[in-house]
Nucleic acid binder design. Sequence first.
DNA 1: GAGTTTGAAACT
DNA 2: CAGTTTCAAACTC
Length: 506
Amino acid sequence: MNELDGQEYSYRRDLTDGSRVPLHHTHESPRMANLFSHGMHSGPGYARMEESLREDDYTTYRILHPLTYDPLPPVAHFGSASYSEYLLAPSSHYQHALGQPYSSIRSPWPSQEAFHYGMSSAEICRSVNTISSESADDYSMEGYSTHQGFRHVNINQPHGLLVSPHDQHEMGEKPPVQTSNICQILRPMQFVCDGGQVVMLNHCSPDQIPHSLMKDLNTEFSLSKLSVQSCSTEDQLPQGQASDARRSEKTVFTGLPQTHTTSAGVMFNLTPGPYASQLHQTLCRTATVEQEEEGHTTGRGRVKWEKSKRPCNCTKSQCLKLYCECFANGEVCNNCKCINCFNNTEHDLERAQAIKTCLERNPGAFRPKIGCKKQGNVKGRHTKGCNCKRSGCLKNYCECYEAKIMCTSTCKCVGCRNYEESPSKKRSDRDRPDSIIYNPTGCPLACITPDVVEATCGCLLAHAEEAEKEGYTSAHAERMILEEFGQCLTQIVRSIFKSTNVQFSV
DNA sequence: GAGTTTGAAACT
DNA sequence: CAGTTTCAAACTC
C-alpha cells in the first residue's frame, strides 16, 4: 500500500492567482507537500486526490489512490509562488524540483519562475551533498537553502547524486537511461520554466550552459524553446541584449539579466547568481527604497547600491578565496581592479575547484551572512556574529555594523557598542532605518523584536524554573511569573516611550 | 594615494 | 579548537 494513501493535506488556496500555498499536511512526506503546493494534485500519472474547498480558503486533499509515476521524461516543475517565496521556502521546493523521482514532473509550467540551486559543477555538488545535511542552521531557510535539495534520490543514482553525462563520464559511471536524464542536471543551477520546459543556469559561470546543460537539454528533450526568467523576477529587471549562448563566454556579466539564444533557437537569460547574496539583494532593495523614500540618492543609499557591485581590488587571492567579495557573493569579477583574477569564465576549472574547497571547508560559505528576519523593523542578524575587538563594532570593519544590524549574543566582539542603548552610538536612529529603534511606520510595537520576545520568555522561564526548584506552589509560581511578566512589560513600554522621546513614569 | 588599522578567512 | 598568518577593505593622513 502506498504510504500516502488516505492521507489528508490542507493547503490554502490563493484566491488571487489560483496558486496553492502549503500550510500543513498530516503526513510527513514533503514530497507530497510539493505536489500540492505546485498544483499537481490532479492529472494523469499523479496521485488521484479528492479536493474540497473549505470555507476558510483551505483546500483539503485526500489521496484516493497510490501514486503512479509518469513514464515520460520528467520536467521539473514550479508553482506560481513568487521567486522570493522560493528563496525563502523550505527545502521542499528544492527537493521537489530536483529530487522528485518522476512523480511530479510533467504538468506545464504555470509561470516563468526562477529556481536557484547553487552555482558550481556536479563535482562540487557531491562535496556539498556529503556535508550539507549537518550544516543546517537557523538561517538556512532564510538564505537559499542551497544544499537542502541534494538529498533526494535519482532513480539511477541511489546515492542521490545528480550529475551530468560529462560528470558521469569523469566519474567512470555508466550514463543513465534517457528517462532519468532530467536528473542529469548540474544541481547548482538556476531552474526556470516556461510553457512546460526548463533550463538550468549557473549564475556564476553562465558559459557552462552551452557547454553542458544546453546541449543535454537540446538533444535529449528536443526543446523547441526555452524561455528563462531572470532570478530577479519580482524585481522586474530590464532585459539585456540578445546574443548567442555559445558566445556567452564573451558576454559581459553585468549583473542584469541578459537574453541569449542558442543555435537551436533556445532563449534564456543570464542573471546574477543565487548567492549574489541575499545581502546583495537586500542592499539593492534597501538602496532603492531609501532613494524612493527620500526622493533622492543619498550618500548612504548610493554606497549601499554600489556595494553590491563594488569592484574588488584583490591582488594575491586570485579572487578565488572568500577574501574576494565578488567570489564570496557568488559572482564573477567584472570591471574589478583585481590582479591575476581567476574569478571569471576563462578559469572555470580553477574557479570550480576553489568553490569546492570553500564548501568543503564550510558548507555554508556562500550563504548570506545576514539572516533575513523581517519582523517588525528588524532586518536580521548575523548568522555567525562578529568578532570585533578594537572597533567597538561602530565602524564598517564590523560586519554587523556594516549590515546595519545590532550585534547579538551570537557575536564574540569585545567592547561592543553596537547595541540599542549604546550611548556612544555615533549614528542617529534615523541613520539606521532597519534598526530596532527606528520606526518609520510609527508603530510602537515594532520595538517588540524577536530578541525582546526571546529575552522576555527567558526571564519568565527562569522564574518558572526557580519556582520549581524552590518547590513553590503553583499559585505562588504563577504569581512570580506574572510579576516578572509585568516587569518585562514595563521595560518594554519604557523602551517604546524612550524611543519616541515621550516621558514615561511608572 | 600611501600607509595604517581592522577583522574575516585561511592556515597551522 | 586556538593561535597565527594572510588578505582585502576600511580608515587616516
